[in-house]
């Protein structure tokens, strides 16, 4: 130890202005430890989510078999004759989400191609903030649009349409995820190197030909990643469907029918007077686990695709 001290002094001690100061090093070590704890909060969050969901749904699965949960075609935990099949909720979730994708993907991709391949700077400067504003609107507001603006409009177009249906929240959700699809797809398109475009232009191809036959296919995996992420967002969206879809779990692919989704069901139970700890109450944790797993899988697929896309030269 004595030797180390001497070494340190020989190196440090030769200047006049060099004072022996330990404080900065102590601070650095202390701060490092504190910041490390901060970063552990994220791990803790994940563990806590898993713990809460697993423990609470354990109580549920003690009374209801997982087979019934996954295969029964009825979801009526709040009725006298109880059935616990998640399929109707899953179906409602997918139905509204797919409608949302039908609305947002074609428009989002067209706008993304336009922004990345055609638009000049001033136009971009108007469009980008608009999309960001769209992304900043709280979902409760979209819920209001769905129930009180879009549904009445649809009722005029489609006679006999009920006040609650899957179509209206699906459309509004499409508007909601439009910015996500657009900006992520645009990033993917922009990541395609210019040399590829130049190869096309040098052959005399038009901008649209280059965009559709060269840029778009090169960016396809990045675009897929953005669509999957948008799907995940739609699956997890809550307030729009809770307000406008009707809270009626049924196994239907008819967009004109009222449905319920996994998220909407959780809100419905949370709002009501179902006693904490009862079987009916624990259903929301079982549903939440299914929701968590579904979005987790979608997110990971998207994450993986994007990583590969960037690695194989999409990104610079």
């Amino acid at each position: 130890m004595q030797l180390f001290k001497e070494v340190g002094q020989a190196i440090a001690g030769e200047s006049k202005i060099q004072k022996k100061r330990r404080l900065p090093y102590l601070t650095d070590t202390l701060v490092r430890a504190i910041l490390f704890l901060c970063s552990l909060v994220s791990v803790f969050t994940t563990l806590a989510i898993l713990a809460v969901l697993v423990v609470q749904s354990y109580y549920f699965f003690r009374e209801v078999s997982i087979i019934e949960f996954l295969t029964s075609k009825q979801w009526t935990p709040l009725f006298a004759e109880k059935h616990f099949g998640i399929l109707p909720l899953l179906c409602g979730t997918l139905l509204t989400s797919l409608i949302a994708l039908l609305v947002s993907v074609p428009l989002g991709l067209a706008v993304a191609v336009y922004l990345s391949e055609y638009a000049r700077r001033p136009i971009r400067k108007v469009i980008k903030p608009f999309l960001e504003i769209l992304a900043g609107i709280p979902t409760i507001v979209y819920g209001y649009f769905a129930l009180l603006t879009i549904t009445p409009l649809l009722q005029k177009l489609i006679p006999g349409l009920g006040g609650f249906n899957a179509l209206s929240p699906g459309i509004v959700m499409g508007i909601m995820i439009l910015p996500l699809v657009t900006s992520l797809s645009e990033d993917a398109l922009r990541a395609v190197p210019d040399s590829l475009r130049e190869g096309g232009f040098a052959l005399g191809a038009s901008k649209l030909q280059v965009s559709l036959t060269i840029v778009f296919p090169s960016a396809l995996s990045g675009i897929m990643a953005s669509i999957i992420l948008a799907l995940s967002r739609a699956v997890g969206e809550t307030m729009i469907v809770a307000i406008a879809a009707g809270n009626l779990p049924q196994l239907t692919w008819n967009p004109l029918e009222p449905v319920s989704t996994m998220t909407a069901y959780i809100v419905q139970v949370s709002q009501g007077d179902t006693p904490y700890g009862s079987l009916a109450y624990n259903t929301i944790f079982a549903v939440a686990i299914a929701l968590f797993v579904l979005t987790f899988i979608l997110n990971m697929i998207s994450f993986r695709i994007r990583k590969t896309f960037m690695a194989i030269g999409g990104g610079n």
Partner: peptide
Amino acid sequence: ADGVRVEDVRKR
């Protein structure tokens, strides 16, 4: 060597 602070080296 052990015990040498990299910051001290860089100040020199």
